[in-house]
Design a protein around this nucleic acid. Structure first.
Lengths: 223, 223
DNA sequence: AAAATGATGTTGCATCAGCAACAAAGCCGG
DNA sequence: CCGGCTTTGTTGCTGATGCAACATCATTTT
């Protein structure tokens, strides 16, 4: 396999990666759609990297309510050590969407100062650093959205972020609408209702999952 | 100054820290209560570490609504590079609460592979890694709370987390109640109302900011 | 001490949003 | 092609929640 495409191994020669996989005793696993990649709250001294495919970090409430906590794309990192503590009785797990592949490595081993001071080890740490940072950015954006007080504000905030990332007023949702409601953490029907109002008010237009956001770039209060 | 207490410099001798501060051209600054430590959206190639005191990462809405995005204690890290992108027109800044001191360093310099492969540099990166990871955990917890659908659920979730951290059913709020409402991202009066109901229902008792959470540890649905 | 500021409580009200319960359309496997 | 499955779309109801407008108390400033 060619590892050069993966952000974790950027700048590390394939041969060295193979050596590290051996040295770190990394596990490499394949998953089918719907399979659980890992469950939080069970030991969890491992860090995972999604080598291929797509996965979701989901939480199941005691009542069974499903909330998508994170979307994990190729190259994404996950693992209890990096994020969620097994707080409550809730079930938190990473679920594969479609076929995927993941690589697991031991967190403590990763952080341990290498006896040989090998350069690829510290490069790996640097890369992980950047991935975790990106991860943080995702979380921050999520907090940005969730900290809004009404459904409309949440949607506005989310759409603004989408537009910013797409660099265009029209962009496709990376979600199904149901999943968007989950992400936004509101009732789906209430969200649909609000979306309808917003469409009627001319704020957005939607063609399936293709959204066109109509609002001035910088400030709404300018007139 | 003795740096050994600070998480960023853990495992690095004081002399070497001084050398690094010079080598990295780090800036060290003092702030009074209410002063702005840094504003996001202005360049932002810097990473800050709070050496002493307490600060808050706050966002001001276009409408002026204040939301606390993060609490930063001594040893905490902040900086645009690590987290928030200057999304919208909103103003995001780190504000000092009380007297505090911060150390700024250049993010790109930090990440640059050291020519001399000096051990303290890579140790610094490792420490930063752990701090960012802790930061991620904070954000995750916040998402946990914010993704709840009602004020009561938010409070329950927050109190459970507090109890978990305190290791006891009774714990002090790290917040003023107004700030808690901000953190939870709801209207303060609505939160007060809900708290009252919860007190009447015997779920919590409060003596000032000292909260006692009464609820079975694991599952509510058990009978 | 007086004034100013901020935290804490409280209430009424209009609206919002969660919930339940549908119907229709699209997608998939057998 | 048919029968399930998910997604999308809609509606009524009602309790929850945001908002405004207060009163009290504590803390800090003048």
């Amino acid at each position: 396999m060619d590892y050069s495409e993966l952000a974790v191994f950027r700048g590390i020669a394939n041969g060295e990666v193979d050596a590290m996989i051996h040295c770190f005793c990394m596990r490499r696993m394949r998953y089918e759609s719907g399979q659980t990649i890992c469950t939080y709250g069970e030991g969890g001294g491992e860090v995972g990297v999604l080598l291929r495919g797509y996965a979701e970090l989901v939480r199941y409430d005691y009542a069974g309510t499903r909330t998508i906590l994170e979307h994990i794309g190729t190259g994404g990192v996950f693992g209890e050590a990096l994020a969620f503590t097994p707080e409550l009785g809730d079930c938190v797990e990473v679920v594969s969407g479609g076929e995927s592949e993941a690589l697991f490595m031991d967190y403590s081993h990763l952080m341990k100062r290498c006896e040989k001071a090998c350069s690829h080890h510290s490069k790996l740490v640097q890369n992980m650093f950047q991935l975790v940072t990106e991860h943080t950015r995702q979380l921050s954006r999520r907090v940005e959205v969730l900290s809004r007080r009404s459904i409309r504000e949440k949607l506005q905030c989310y759409f603004r972020i989408c537009r910013l990332e797409a660099g265009a007023d029209t962009f496709p949702l990376p979600f199904t609408l149901s999943a968007l409601a989950d992400y936004i953490s509101t009732d789906r029907s209430a969200m649909m209702r609000e979306l309808k109002k917003m469409r009627e008010a001319g704020l957005v237009s939607m063609d399936g999952r293709l959204v066109t956001w109509r609002e001035d770039g910088e400030a709404t209060e300018r007139s």
